[in-house]
Write a protein that binds this DNA or RNA. Structure first.
Lengths: 283, 283
DNA sequence: AAGAAATTACGTAAATTTATAACCTTTCCA
DNA sequence: TGGAAAGGTTATAAATTTACGTAATTTCTT
């Protein structure tokens, strides 16, 4: 079944014959309308016969016209564009707001397919029994590392986060079996972090990478949580990548929480409640 | 037209009469299957007559059964869950991985409806002409503030981020007209930050809040970007909220970039390219 | 509180719309 | 000129919807 039928149609437009192309054009012109039309209405709009529309549908691996409409509807769902359009110079605020949210959603949908629960499980295995956990990140990944530290301190395991390359090197070199070092890097190609991973493993620590598959960094980790975001080329700033990394952090933190068992939830609640004093009461 | 028909069905379940509830239950049990069934098959499964199914569909503001299926298909598209189920104690890694990603996506879908592009525009107006920008956040919002700092330094405006309450107070007190202070707080009820907002406004600075609508903090801001996430009660850790805040940061940064015009993209590219030296080449 | 009236719930059957299969005509190329 | 290939016509089957009637439930009397 086609993952996105709109893309398919525009891609295959060339290879269609005359009448079927008419159908394709009518659909592409107003896909929303197509989902609401009957085969008769659509055929008339494209000035072809009904069976032609039906044959067109089957060409795209759908059971028939109703099934085709279902696929079309899915492709149009959420107003998420069938190809997440990138931000254009003359977009207004509404336009770029929606585009960015769409792109982020699209990235997470991809992440859902990419992230391997087995690997998560392995990583949680290590984290749960760590003597000490260290989160390393540079640049845009540094806030991610800090966020992780902010989550994991709750587990009563010594946790630190460093963005200072020298501290990272020294800590990695000084680490030992039972320590877990989590390195967060979008590209996985930052030399410094690859070095750090090597150092850490040489010292006997477990290195968990949250990074791109098959990257130099990935090759030096004990466990790699693969996050394969499309390059954020649009405006030259890391956007969706770090959101995906944060989501991985959430998943790992949840995994550890669950392993700790139900009693541990009380502990978490205490931590949360400790903030009450600092706040105005909820209305 | 219902924004998400699955939510509607589960919400209205109570108010349905006996036969229609049977239909609802069959659909909720396996919505995917429902989209592929004919009205006859569905009626049989629910042990009701076909017109009952049809009436059920119309009750949800759809034209009829086929139209209903279309809405259903849209609600199920992308694997986005209609209600994000919360993590259960005996979930395995696959299960909680998917649940967390789903919850994050659901939050963003909500954000898309909640975030007001007009307000974004106003905030960008202020940011673009700021003499100086300051990002303040505490706890889980501190990494968000840092991330913002990491984005906004590219704009050649002095940008700082503080998580130290005393520094925040002092900076707020010392600020003046033309300074923009962005305060990030999920609840909007942290006393310290409300104080800081008051101080800053008294000094003449513009205060942009990224926080909950109608919160105490919101009341003391010049501009409020409203982010109304459902409480992350599940495991007592902030998860989706900060992702939404980061997305708002992305949107603001994009808005500023676009205002700067096309030449500015070259500048951004230069910054990005400056990292080349530190990396292994892409394969 | 009993029973009549009215409303609502829901099924049967018929009507209508919609989709598909089977078959036929045209076109165009070898 | 034979024969694919494309596309239309007709016929049929399937699915959906409307119309209507009966049973069940609620509401209103007295």
């Amino acid at each position: 079944m086609p993952s996105n039928i709109m893309q398919q149609i525009s891609a295959d437009l060339e290879s269609l014959n005359r009448s079927e192309r008419k159908v394709a054009e009518v659909i592409l012109a107003d896909p929303q309308a197509a989902t609401r039309s009957s085969i008769a209405v659509l055929a008339r709009a494209a000035q072809v016969s009904e069976p032609t529309v039906n044959r067109f549908c089957k060409r795209f691996n759908t059971a028939g016209f109703p099934d085709f409409k279902l696929h079309l509807a899915q492709a149009l769902a959420h107003g998420v564009p069938y190809v997440s359009r990138s931000v254009e110079p003359d977009d207004d605020s509404e336009s770029y707001t929606n585009k960015i949210i769409d792109a982020t959603i699209a990235a997470l949908v991809t992440a859902k397919k990419t992230v391997d629960p087995q690997t998560i499980n392995l990583a949680v295995d290590q984290l749960i029994q760590a003597k000490q956990i260290m989160f390393f990140g540079l640049g845009a990944s540094w806030p991610v590392a800090q966020d992780a530290q902010h989550k994991f301190f709750r587990f009563n395991i010594p946790v630190v986060a460093y963005d200072d390359v020298l501290m990272q090197r020294m800590t990695a070199a000084a680490s030992s079996t039972g320590d877990v070092i989590v390195i967060i890097s979008y590209t996985g190609r930052t030399r410094e972090l690859v070095d750090v991973a090597e150092l850490a493993r040489a010292s006997g620590a477990t290195v968990v990478g949250i990074t791109a598959p098959n990257s130099p960094l990935a090759q030096h980790c004990s466990i790699v949580v693969e996050v394969d975001a499309p390059e954020d080329t649009d405006v030259y700033m890391p956007m969706t990548s770090r959101i995906m990394h944060l989501t991985v952090i959430d998943i790992l933190a949840t995994g550890v929480t669950l392993r700790r068992g139900p009693d541990f939830l009380k502990h978490l609640k205490n931590i949360k409640d400790s903030l009450k004093e600092t706040r105005y009461p909820a209305k």
